[in-house]
Simulated scan of single mutants.
Amino acid sequence: MEAARAALAAVGVQAMLTSAIAEAFARGRDRLAAGGGVREVLTSVCNRRGAAPCVFVTTGAEWLANAELGEEVFGPLGIVVLVRDGEERLAVARALQGQLTCTLQMDEEDTAEAQALMPILERKAGRVLANGFPTGVEVADAMVHGGPYPASTNFGHTSVGTLAIRRWLRPVCYQNLPESLLPGDLR
């Protein structure tokens, strides 16, 4: 936890896509900070469209008792859930809502517990990672941005992966136009 706090404390403020997204992030961060059962590991001040990383920690029992802790806060915010044992870990995984990603931070000796989690996580997320952090997203063949509800499994509603092109595509038919009037790509 200290290593995560130290590493993230060095990350500067980043601009959110819109003011509304930044405001929603600040409200979500403030909601978690004001709620019971969580402790701040790293918090930051957000202003205008800027946001910096925030990390909170809670117990598995608190997380399971408070569904609000499982609600998404879009932006650089994380909650570390400390579980007492493997059974509580499975209960937390089962209680997850649909996610874009789920990440296992594990050592080799955690493989058996990770194997027990995989059938749950692969039904909860569109991307499952080990010992890393989700990458940014882009329009690329090897990337999808989906998962079970509330994430989207409909390619027409994604902004990443090659199928995202269809979301923003508006076909136009050019009939009997002279070449000089066609878009450059069609000349």
Results as ranks from 00 to 15, higher is better:
G98N: 00
P76S: 13
V13M: 09
Q175C: 10
F56H: 05
T103C: 08
V160T: 06
G98A: 03
E71I: 03
G70I: 10
T162P: 04
E88V: 12
R48D: 14
M16F: 04
A26K: 05
R27C: 04
G50Q: 10
P148C: 03
L181C: 03
S159K: 06
A95Y: 08
E71M: 07
W63C: 04
G35E: 10
E109M: 04
L17A: 14
V144G: 02
N176F: 07
P53K: 08
A4V: 11
G136I: 07
G70V: 08
M1R: 07
S180F: 01
R31G: 06
A114F: 01
A114S: 05
Q97L: 07
L77C: 13
G161M: 11
R166D: 15
R166H: 15
S152K: 07
A95I: 07
G75M: 12
A20M: 04
S159Y: 14
N66R: 15
C46S: 13
V80G: 01
L82E: 14
P134M: 05
A6S: 14
V57K: 00
V41E: 11
V128E: 03
D110Q: 06
L77N: 11
L32V: 13
R48P: 00
N154S: 15
A15Y: 07
L69G: 01
S152E: 11
T43P: 03
T43H: 12
A95G: 09
L17Y: 05
R167F: 14
I21P: 00
N154C: 15
L177E: 04
R89M: 14
W168I: 15
N66S: 15
L77M: 14
E68R: 14
G35W: 06
A4M: 13
G60I: 03
G78M: 05
A4T: 04
M1Q: 09
V128G: 06
M118Y: 11
T135V: 13
E179P: 03
T135Y: 04
I21R: 02
L82N: 01
F133G: 08
F155G: 12
L100S: 09
E68P: 01
A9L: 10
E71L: 10
P53S: 08
T101D: 10
D110R: 00
Q175W: 08
P178E: 02
C54D: 12
Y174G: 08
G126W: 06
T158M: 14
A10K: 12
A20I: 08
M143T: 10
C102M: 04
L8E: 10
V172C: 07
V13D: 11
M16Y: 02
Q14C: 12
L169D: 02
A20W: 03
V13N: 04
E68T: 14
V128Q: 05
G50A: 09
G147L: 07
R49W: 03
V55D: 02
A24D: 10
R31A: 14
P171Y: 10
V83F: 02
L100A: 10
V13W: 04
R49Y: 04
E87H: 15
E88S: 09
Y149H: 07
T59A: 00
F74N: 12
G156P: 11
L17P: 02
V128A: 05
A22H: 02
A4N: 03
G70S: 14
N176V: 01
D30I: 09
D30F: 09
V144I: 11
A6N: 12
A24Y: 00
A24W: 00
E122N: 06
R94E: 11
